Computed example of a mutant assay.
Amino acid sequence: MREVRNSLTFANLLDDAALLSLEHQLHLEEVLAEHSWHVNLKQPLFEFTGDRTITCTAFHLLGTAAPGPASWLWAWANPSGFPEAVVSASERVRDFGRQHDIPELASAEVPFASLPGSPSVPHVVAGLLTEAAKTVTGHWTSYNGEAGGGTRAAFLVEHPDFHLPAPEPVRVIRVIQQALADLSLTDHRRALRAYAAGRGLGAEFDDREGRLTGPGFEVVVDLDAYGRVTAIKAGLPSPDGPTP
């Protein structure tokens, strides 16, 4: 009997995370504005300071991207021995990677060159592994910062202020447009479906068109023969309400 292998890939996880992650990061920027950050991995404590102090209700160290070895090290494999509460999310990612045969998640150390596009910049590498981890863990707000010597440490952070508000038409359109312009999506249709599911939007797709619907609005995308979005059309509610 021929072995049937799991078809889920690292690229799939990036597409699944892309738009919902982008919206969370845009929201985080608005909440924090100008800020500083501080983490104590032993206590543990993670807080942002600026106009006000936000102490995270929970946070998770995913790993570090270091320029010297040009590799990413998952937090569960870090010999520093961080508390279980800090590294448990990275362990969930590891177990998922082993279950689905995804080496980028299952391996303790991941060379930069093995990732899509062979990135060489630590913060880009940290971003890629964090995106995949978001899909696995369901924690959608992240932060990565300088950890010394050019190394970037990547975290998932939690706080009620980081929760997204209800979907709103202008915001949804902005997220879709920015994702298509700025992100390297492998499968546009998959990314849009995942975003719709994450935001509780209706989603219908055929070979040439996709339709996302929410309270009082719809966004229609045209798709080419390769499933790539070629145009976006939006129907927005009238500011004066429905026409009698």
Rank of each mutant, 00 (worst) to 15 (best):
K233I: 01
E209W: 08
T213M: 12
G214Y: 01
R211F: 04
V172T: 00
A179I: 00
A191H: 06
P242H: 09
L183R: 11
D224H: 15
R199Y: 01
A231D: 03
A194C: 10
E209H: 14
Q178K: 12
P239D: 01
V220E: 15
R208K: 14
R211Y: 04
A203Q: 06
Y195K: 10
V219Q: 10
D240E: 10
A203L: 12
D240M: 13
G216K: 14
A196N: 03
A191Q: 03
A194T: 02
L223P: 03
D222A: 13
V221R: 11
L223V: 02
I173L: 13
P239L: 06
Y195L: 04
K233R: 09
A196P: 06
Y195T: 00
L236M: 05
V221H: 08
E218S: 15
R228P: 07
V219D: 04
I176G: 04
G227T: 06
L183C: 05
L183Q: 06
R199Q: 02
K233V: 01
G210A: 08
V175I: 03
G214F: 02
G210V: 00
I173F: 10
A191F: 06
A194Q: 07
V175S: 06
S184Q: 09
T186Y: 14
L180K: 03
G210D: 00
L185C: 10
P244K: 13
G202S: 08
G200S: 07
E204Q: 13
R193H: 10
G210C: 07
G198E: 01
L236D: 00
K233C: 05
D187C: 12
F205D: 03
Q178S: 09
Y226W: 13
T213P: 09
L212H: 01
P244Q: 14
T230D: 03
G241M: 07
D224P: 15
P239T: 00
F217N: 03
G241P: 05
R189K: 13
G235C: 04
D182P: 11
E218Q: 14
G200W: 05
A197N: 11
P239K: 05
R174K: 14
